[in-house]
Design a protein around this nucleic acid. Structure first.
Lengths: 278, 278
DNA sequence: CGCCGCTTGGAATAAATATTCCAAAAGTTG
DNA sequence: CAACTTTTGGAATATTTATTCCAAGCGGCG
């Protein structure tokens, strides 16, 4: 019954709530031309910035001309950007539950609830990252990068809980066109003979140290290949075998580590090696 | 010693943080003429709306003419309303805006010392974790856990950059004695027929979305099996296929994500499912 | 009670911002 | 490969919004 003779031009239903907005966005996104698709994605990833941005800013963020973003608003059912923004400005109720407040809320759930667990892991991850930033030994890091940069092929090995790190390293190396091989233990094939003179090993293991990882590192060491270790303490068995040992202090929660610090360290290493090789 | 011949007009120091703003406000409020006093009071009571309001709106709220509010801004040390608003707009969006700029600079400058890189990745990880804590939708999380807890076998799939997450999930599930199967794409075997009635799929993928992951999810969906998605935005193609979609805001470094937030979320999910099944 | 400095409101102006429109480019289809 | 449709970018325009400025108001003080 919208008899507004004024706004007759838009019988189309613009989303009235943020929920509706999201649904609509998800619904139309897939069959959208290239430019509009970029808008949709950027908007989806930055919904919370709509309230405080201008067309130009958002457009720049999405890397499209402003007019494209304008069209996007209209496709979403609004008369224009301003109308869309109005929705979000009104919904901008919650002030800003800053991080620590929000964390408390999450933890306030019954213990063992997903949200409470998440709060703990987030906290553990953050502490680990902070500890890492403080404790890292730059010289060891530099040496590790130098060694790996000189290697022909980098052999990455890490099993069990270190495997995610190893596989991410392999991914990053591949993306940066650094010759690397992931020793994944598939089929119990150990590929030990893939180690060639000129190569280097990057071994990752935490207590309880994985037998296979140590074996490969020892093997390489015995044959005079440089070994870089990524481990938890300097007393790790890797320390004796490795030419450079980078330690990472990871905070546990329950039986599991967040791996945040380890992965941050691993990517840094990989990216540094990647740039150094160019 | 501000020798800026440009901004000589304002040697006064405008508040640089919300904290400073509040202090200043409290300090000057009492000895202010009537109209300005009204501004101060209204602003103090509605600090959080500054970011999303116009001069006119705020002035109306304070029941003063716009020009009075303008004067108020200047007395607070800003050049005008816009500058004041900028403070709140930037403070609102969690550090993200100038962060991507900083990364660009870093890349451009080739200041790629490993330690510097590490600092950036640590920062990216921290921001991601904080953003995750702020943005996570508890209900979706609960639903995801409930669904997975009921499943006979959980099929975990995630390739390329999502693979580390998938493999860590597989590790945690194994440790907690939750029947789970990691679809790793080894040998291009897709194991699609391992999906049995009563099972559930936990799919992880980020843009650019991996074909194989989507295929498996679609397959499961078509056969009526519950699909839980772990992805970057709600516009992800996973969103259409999944019964519950958990999104993770992760800060990129070029092509590389820190994964911190994603892993934290993944473990929480896994541990919650593990406990729920006991 | 009339002068003077501080305060105020509003109209005028400047700046920023949104929005439209059209010509060119990119695809599509027969 | 030509005719046609859709998509795109950017310049032109309209609208909103911020900001300045000045004349009028107010209150204290001699």
């Amino acid at each position: 019954m919208t008899d507004d003779s004024e706004t007759l031009q838009t019988p189309t239903n613009a989303p009235a709530t943020v929920e509706e907005f999201r649904e609509r966005l998800a619904a139309i996104t897939e069959d959208l031309p290239k430019r509009l698709r970029k808008c949709a994605d950027h908007i989806a990833a930055n919904t919370d910035r709509i309230a405080v941005s201008t067309v130009a800013e958002l457009a720049a963020g999405a890397d499209v001309p402003p007019s494209a973003l304008m069209r996007f608003c209209q496709i979403m059912g609004f008369s224009g950007f301003s109308e869309m923004q109005k929705l979000f400005r009104e919904a901008y109720a919650p002030g800003w539950p800053d991080y620590s407040t929000r964390l408390k809320n999450l933890k306030a759930n019954r213990t063992g609830s997903p949200a409470a667990l998440l709060a703990e892991f987030v906290e553990a991850g953050r502490l680990s990252l902070e500890a890492l930033a403080k404790s890292v030994d730059e010289q060891v890091l530099d040496r590790a990068v130098a060694t790996l940069s000189r290697a022909d092929t980098i052999h990455v090995v890490g099993l069990r809980r270190a495997f995610p790190v190893a596989s991410y390293l392999a991914y990053v190396f591949e993306k940066m066109a650094v010759p690397a091989m992931l020793h994944d233990g598939v089929g119990k094939l150990d590929h030990r003979f893939a180690l060639r003179p000129g190569d280097a090993v990057l071994a990752i293991t935490f207590a309880p140290y994985s037998e296979e990882t140590l074996t490969l590192a020892a093997d390489a060491h015995a044959r005079g290949l440089p070994v870089i270790g990524l481990t938890d303490t300097l007393t790790s068995p890797l320390a004796r075998l490795a030419d450079a040992v980078v330690t990472v202090p990871e905070v546990d929660f329950g039986a599991f580590r967040s791996l945040s610090a380890t992965i941050a360290l691993a990517i840094s290493l990989a990216v540094a090696v990647g740039s150094a090789r160019e």
